[in-house]
Amino acid sequence: MAQAEGGYYVPHQSSWPIIGSVGVTALVVGIALYLEGIGAGPWVLGAGLLITLWMVVGWFGDVVREGLTGLYSDQVDRSLRWGMIFFIFSEVMLFAAFFGALFYARVLSVPWLSGADPATSRLIWDSVALTWPTAGPANAAMEWRPMGPWPLPTINTLILLTSGVTLTAAHHALKDGNRGKLVGYMWATIALGLVFIGLQAYEYYHAYEHLNLRLETGIYGSTFFMLTGFHGMHVLIGTLMLGVIAVRCMKGHFRPEAHFGFEATAWYWHFVDVVWLGLYIFVYIL
């Protein structure tokens, strides 16, 4: 095979990247137009979304076909692994920015605003007593309640942790060559993911309707929805990835000794799990 002869699979042309550039550009320009209230926005956005999806499906389709025809040597496999590891690392750092905002607000800026550092609070706002959770000095009169850890977030924590277990069970089934068990655990994982998203959606509804907790609810609302919202988006993407992988499992694309597509998705799912644990502790409990 390629490895023995020192070859490395280099695809010599591809239209997907340029299609992806057009799609992503249309997508973001569409969102920007929409945010600025310019008429064509939603159309450009929709077109960009479709082109981007076309690119994703086409590009991954190429990769899947190449993988199945045995073009990928062990060395190519390692490149894909490094790529996925550092992609996940970049995602970790994206969440780090939002966690950083939460910690900064709780540990520094809210105490400073309420007079811990008198010079600062006097310059910025007439001193008011603020304690976390807070919606800020301008919203002191606002009636709202924070989201506690019980019951929904705790249930969701258990659901995500269980989904990590079922996914690992699926991985073991794959390595044992037991396709029936593999497919069963895959769909169980996806079902748990969907339940999580459903409960999270209900939690948002509950926040808006019963707690009056909104994006506009000062720094608490900002950090709460930004962190849980970005996490929810990642769960959604992860669930879609698991869906694709489940179908590929059913088609028998994976062999016990070669199934990086499965592993990459599993890594991603576990990453989303770990981020949730951080959320559960720092957003809901503490």
């Binding site: 945010l35 905002a101 706002w125 919606a135 720094i219 900002s222 929805f225």
Partner: peptide, 27 residues
């Protein structure tokens, strides 16, 4: 990605009413 996070918070402060960078809302 940290830069991406920072400018995303600018975007939500501008269009979605968050208060990351506004003292009025505790940011």
């Amino acid at each position: 990605p940290v830069l991406a996070g920072a400018i995303t918070m600018l975007l939500t402060d501008q269009y979605f009413g968050t208060s990351f960078f506004s003292a009025a809302g505790g940011g």
